[in-house]
Computed example of a mutant assay.
Amino acid sequence: MDLTGIGGIWPASLTPFDRDGAVDEAALTAHLGHLAAAPGVRALVVNGHAGETSALDRAERQQVVRIARAVAGAATGVVAGIVAEDPRAASALARDAREAGADALLLFPPLLFAGGAEARPEMVLRFFAAVAEAAPLPIVLFQLSRASGLGYAPELLARLLREVPSIIAVKEGSEIPAAYEDNLLVLRDCGRQVSMLTSNNTWLLASLAFGGDGILSGIGSVAPGILAEMHDAAARGDLAAARRANDRLRPLVRVFYRRPSLDMHNRMKTALNLMGLLPNPAPRAPLLPITEGERAEIRRALVASGLLAGGEMAA
């Protein structure tokens, strides 16, 4: 599927494990099927932070992509996260993803870039070029916060778009509204179609108000319908409807995106378990299961958002 110019909702999926800690293929198939069937979902994103990809070995990552491809069919895209610390490993993962049927790659910056990659732009360009050459698939660039050192300044972003034509979208998580707006202007001025997919999870509505083509986020694994309502309302300029959707989303945002941030997707697994959509919410070590007290808070947030009614999943 050609994802060029495609916006809408791109949920960053979770990876279920069974009681022995292995990838639970049946639960993953059901999870991805539920997401693919949700109105407004245009692509399934696997092997990202939400999918605990750093805890998966190479074979498991390819296994996840294969399952996603089988579930998605022809109507929904499959985007494979590429998380690696050097171009050789990233290229190997990219080739695996292509072989397994991915439509595009979500290319994460190596943690090494946090040490000042913007001062060595050729290093960044070579990293992208190596992956693009290894697996000729469209690339979604992952733009993290500038404070983390893993975001690209507008000048470098513009150069990447010029010199790596396979980049078709940006997963934008700069965390600062002014930076988001600057990056959006770079995309609009680059001379070709590059989609802006916001992942600024604590201010999704505000980012859509600036402009944008879609939402790529782990919270889409729990509430794809709410995200679709908000996105569609913002796109048609219906601020009142967008605010109503945001009001439903807010309790989930508050309970998922708080300290310690390493548990954010762990909390989402617990939410799906409470909704009857995931048999085993346990993450893979070294992450620990959610405490009973936090589980109760997640339940209250689901009720407040309308996703649970009387302890059961709302229609």
Rank of each mutant, 00 (worst) to 15 (best):
A223I: 12
L184Q: 13
A242C: 03
P289H: 03
F113N: 02
G310V: 00
D247C: 01
H34L: 10
P136A: 12
M230A: 04
A74V: 10
E297T: 05
G116Y: 15
V164F: 02
V131H: 00
I215Y: 08
G21N: 13
G311D: 00
V170G: 05
E294S: 01
G40Y: 05
P260N: 10
L187A: 11
L105H: 03
G293Y: 06
L308I: 04
L287G: 02
V71I: 14
R42E: 12
V124S: 01
A97W: 03
P165G: 11
A37D: 13
R248Y: 07
M196S: 10
R236N: 08
N183Y: 04
G212Y: 00
H49F: 12
V71T: 14
F256H: 12
V124C: 07
A130C: 08
G225N: 08
S221I: 10
A26E: 11
L185T: 15
F142T: 07
L28G: 08
A97V: 03
R98T: 01
A68K: 04
V194G: 05
R159Y: 10
A206M: 11
L208Y: 03
A74D: 15
Q193D: 14
S195Y: 14
R267P: 04
V46C: 09
T29C: 09
T53N: 09
A90W: 02
A169M: 05
Y257I: 02
D263W: 09
V255M: 04
A117K: 04
V303G: 10
D263G: 01
V71W: 11
E297N: 03
P109K: 08
A158S: 13
L141D: 03
E175I: 06
R146C: 03
A240N: 10
P154K: 08
E60D: 14
L184I: 13
L302Y: 07
P279C: 06
L277C: 09
S199V: 13
A245K: 00
G218A: 03
D238G: 09
A74G: 13
N183D: 14
R66F: 01
L249M: 11
I168H: 07
Q193F: 02
A100N: 05
V83Q: 06
T76C: 13
R42T: 15
D20W: 05
A135N: 08
D247E: 14
N266Q: 12
A134T: 06
I168E: 01
V164G: 00
I219C: 02
L28P: 00
A301Y: 06
P110H: 09
I82H: 04
M264Q: 14
L141I: 08
E294P: 05
